[in-house]
Design a protein around this nucleic acid. Sequence first.
DNA 1: TTGGGTCAAGGAGTC
DNA 2: GACTCCTTGACCCAA
Length: 299
Amino acid sequence: MIRLGYPTQNLFIPASTNRSLRLANLGDEEKLKALIRDNTSDLETILRWNAEHDIGLFRMGQNLIPFASHPEFSYEWREVHGEELARAGSLAASLGVRLSMHPGQYINPGSPKPEVVERSLHELRYVAAIFDAMGISDGVLVLHLGGAYDDKEASAKRFIETMKPETETLRYLALENDERIWTVEEVSRTAAALGIPAITDTLHHALNPGGLALPEALDLSLPTWNSRGDRPKLHISSQNPEKQAGAHDYAIHAEDWDVLRNALDGRDADIMVEAKGKEQALIPLGANVPKLAKEENRA
DNA sequence: TTGGGTCAAGGAGTC
DNA sequence: GACTCCTTGACCCAA
């Protein structure tokens, strides 16, 4: 069985789990708390909508608790928002919607700079703490391997050594290939050293295949999920022809979907659809999703 | 009122 | 060495 999902927001409802504010305004606690309540409330709305439309995956916005890992965050968010997070987590579990989060390009545990490593670990621990607070054991923390620093082998080794003691984070962590540096083969090898799963992103793989065809890449990454006992996860996106390599298009191109389906060859997978059209991009893939009347959000 | 530029953070690539 | 891109929404400022 194939399950589909989309990231951070739903254009149809509309609803977003990614509201944020400027760092300069972080001191306004009432505003911050209200914004977080809006994010978690929209998360519940999206979860219910997903279940009604047979959508089994959703990626929460990294700003669910904005600046949670920043030193200037002024209160204990686990205590203040613990109840609403637990409620959303229990709703996700009861509806059978699997959740994930995906920290951005600034998170580099393999960096040679200690301050970058420290900040990265704070952000990763924040995501693990969110999953813990929500009580969702099948949550997925998706991360790229980061920079190469002119020596991939040394960088991968640093990444492994940094992450090895982070047992709370490793329960959720999965490593994804990228479009320029780390191939599926390299990511799978690094993930294996940490005993965690690997994610193949089809667009990144097409741009940075490392000599592997997509079916071979899937042969490497899909079985890495067996040890955790979770369904294998992967990403699909299509190139925006007007932008630089790796930029996501509004929808998934039919040929990209066909290539993935053929490569899967009947195997089960949870597929995160990374497209500007969010849940609208699932419609041509066969999802039972209502169409936006106007596509004013279209890039 | 709108539209454009900037905002916590990293790294790689281009010029 | 300066600038750009990767994402999204907030927010400031100029027109």
